[in-house]
Design a binder for these strands. Sequence first.
DNA 1: CGTCCTAACTTGAAGCATCAAGTTAGGCCC
DNA 2: GGGCCTAACTTGATGCTTCAAGTTAGGACG
Lengths: 163, 163
Amino acid sequence: MANDGSDTTPWLTPQERRAWLSIAALIVKLPNALDAQLQSDSGIGFFDYMVLAVLSEEPRRTLQLSDIAAATSASLSRLSHTVTRLERQGLVRRERIPGPGRRTNAVLTDEGYAKVVAAAPAHVRRVRDLVIDALTPTQLRTLGTVGARVIERIDPGRSCSDD
Amino acid sequence: MANDGSDTTPWLTPQERRAWLSIAALIVKLPNALDAQLQSDSGIGFFDYMVLAVLSEEPRRTLQLSDIAAATSASLSRLSHTVTRLERQGLVRRERIPGPGRRTNAVLTDEGYAKVVAAAPAHVRRVRDLVIDALTPTQLRTLGTVGARVIERIDPGRSCSDD
DNA sequence: CGTCCTAACTTGAAGCATCAAGTTAGGCCC
DNA sequence: GGGCCTAACTTGATGCTTCAAGTTAGGACG
């Protein structure tokens, strides 16, 4: 129970530790901050917003559930529950795909589209305030690169696309 | 409803957008990955682990609830519920502070201490694999700096200390 | 053409987080 | 020393996430 996979466990150096503390705080606080902004300004959570946003960028405002799940880094189960809720709010609608297998699309309704359009400006502004405009272009670039690198480590072989 | 706080909402440039997509994926996936590792190796969530870890670094393995909440970026309510659960598992114990006000300490039990000690190596290894060792020292340094900067924007005036 | 198989989704229960209301223990002020 | 105030928690309800188990629609194999 005290040896989970290695005899030698190199602890963090003071520099590494300091960096890690900042990163840990970041990945806790940034999602909270974005959730809070969207919740209070538009009555919607960050994840729900991402789902609507992803759909709004599709030509037919339509995407298969498993593709949405991949785009938002969520489990299919989570997504299914979420789509059920969004459906109840009239923002989205389900649609069976006729072909082979048991595939289902989610389609953004007009009301759903209006919701994202209404929510986006304040959301983007907050993202700018907290992240984009807080950093130099070089820092932002590094952050993007570094994020992609870590993501690649988490699940090797994936692209990314959400908002 | 279409104008949440500004007439001119500068959208993201393609570079900014690409960076933001990486960052968004990062703040969703990294917590999930850490949670999954801790859950499967030690049967404990990331947040619970942080609470125990913070306590384990105190001289008397004791800290006031509101200080733990601050150190882990959580609400007092969330922390109180969590401490109740940890208490039920025998990992922590509550202790009223006699002085003024209605202050309460959480104290790490021996069992709780054993738990963190057992969980830490695999957790640290995962943090190394995913983040620390995936980046150059310069990138890590930048990431730390940048994290601190964003945190400062989120709630101005705070230090950080957790694991 | 029937059985097995897989991929994609659904569902229900259990756990965890959040929000809004309480509660509690002293200070403060007259 | 009685009423009021604040800070620090606690609690219960509600909602979201996860987990494990189920369901469904074809395809492949024999």
